[in-house]
Structures are given as C-alpha cells and as structure tokens.
Design a protein around this nucleic acid. Structure first.
Lengths: 101, 101
DNA sequence: ATCTTTGTTCGTAATATTACGAATGATAAT
DNA sequence: ATTATCATTCGTAATATTACGAACAAAGAT
C-alpha cells in the first residue's frame, strides 16, 4: 500500500484489516478455529489433517504468527502452536465493535 | 486454491474466510464501517474522503460486492452503495461463532 | 558420531492483489 | 443533439499470495 503517511484510517480499522487478512484463507481459518477451541497443537497434527504440503502449511502458520494471532514454541523436534491470547482478545474486541455484536 | 474436491473445510470456515478476505484491507474496512453505520452512501463521497484513485476505489467496491457484503444501485448518474443486510447478518453470525463473542 | 524425526527455508512458478491514468459508458441537464 | 457528471472498465505495472518439492536445520534417539 502506498497511500499518504497521514492516512484516513483509524488505528482500529488498520488493525482489524490486518487480522481479517490473516483470517482470509480457509487453511488459516481452520487453524485458528482449532487453536481457539483447544489449548494448543503440533504442526504435525495439522499437516496430517490438511490437504496441503508441509511447506505450504508452514507459510500459513508464519502468516498467522506475523499477524500476531498465534505463537509457536519449540518443543524439539516439534513445534507447539498456541493462540496468542492477548492479540486474540484484541481481535475479538475489534470485530465485536466493528460488527456490533 | 487447488486442494482436493472434498475439502477438509466446513462451509462455515469457507464462508468466514471469504468474508474475512473481503475485510482484509483498510479501504474496505473503512467502507464497511461507514455503510454499516449509516444507511447508504455514494461512491463520490467515498472518493472524496479516501486517498486513492477513483478507479482503485471502484475495484475495492467490486470486491465487496463480489463477496456479497455490499450492493450498489444505480441512481444515475451516481451509484448508491448500501450494506447487503442479509449477508452482513450472516457475517456477523459467522464471526460471532468463530470468535465466540 | 550417525540416523531419524520434525519443521522451516529456499527456489520457483502461477495467479491474485493493489494501484494508476486513460478510455469508455450511462444518464441527466442544457 | 451536445455537453456535463459520475462511475466503471481497460490496459498496465509492481508486488503479494499460494503452492509445491528439494534442501537444510535442530535436536533427540541409537
């Protein structure tokens, strides 16, 4: 996005858009739904369930991480992924406000 | 997306992802917020407020229309855009469920 | 020390997104 | 009929996304 420094957009709009973008793919929706329901999971579990290459899954997980919605901690040789509770809560609030629900 | 015919994803996940994707840009977030608050608006109003070319705005509006979140009716020579109430409600429900709020 | 397991990163390709200005279309006003 | 207004579509370019398999990295098990 180029768009002038002093944007017209509120901080909230930009944050909500960022989260929405991260949610904007079935694979990432699937992961988020799973992780928000149970505590955590291993990348391998997801890989077994999803019809995509491991490397592709890694990319999606990275996007969710970059957006701040999940976090991964190494539990060698595996990686345990969990929801990032703080940001998840923020996303909940933002969408609650935005959607007025 | 290629991914096998019989996807692992639920209808809800796919729909929610579709809506989320449409919301995943500040301009579109801005438009949605405006339209969900007031009844309707004209493309020109948006164009005045937003730091993007008219043609770019048109593209964003088309995306929101294609996702089903807004609808435009011609009121020549202008176009009046409104929220698509039915689908907006569906999106509210989907996100409510997804985010558990 | 080597092998195994697990995930990420790299290299690559196809497609989608975002953006602009110019051209076009559609209708109202003159 | 011509002109003015408003918005979309077209043509184009730069960048991002999505996907794959191969190569690599990290750490536990043998």
């Amino acid at each position: 996005m180029i768009m002038a420094e002093e944007t017209v957009f509120t901080e909230k709009q930009q944050k909500a858009a960022r989260y929405a973008k991260a949610m904007g793919h079935p694979v990432r929706m699937y992961v988020l739904e799973l992780l928000s329901n149970q505590s955590c999971c291993y990348s391998g579990n997801l890989s077994d369930e999803l019809p995509i290459a491991k490397s592709t899954l890694s990319q999606h997980l990275k996007e969710l991480k970059d957006a701040g919605l999940i976090q991964g901690e190494i539990e060698a040789p595996r990686v345990k992924y969990c929801i990032n509770r703080a940001n998840w809560k923020e996303a909940q609030l933002l969408f609650k406000e935005f959607l007025k629900i």
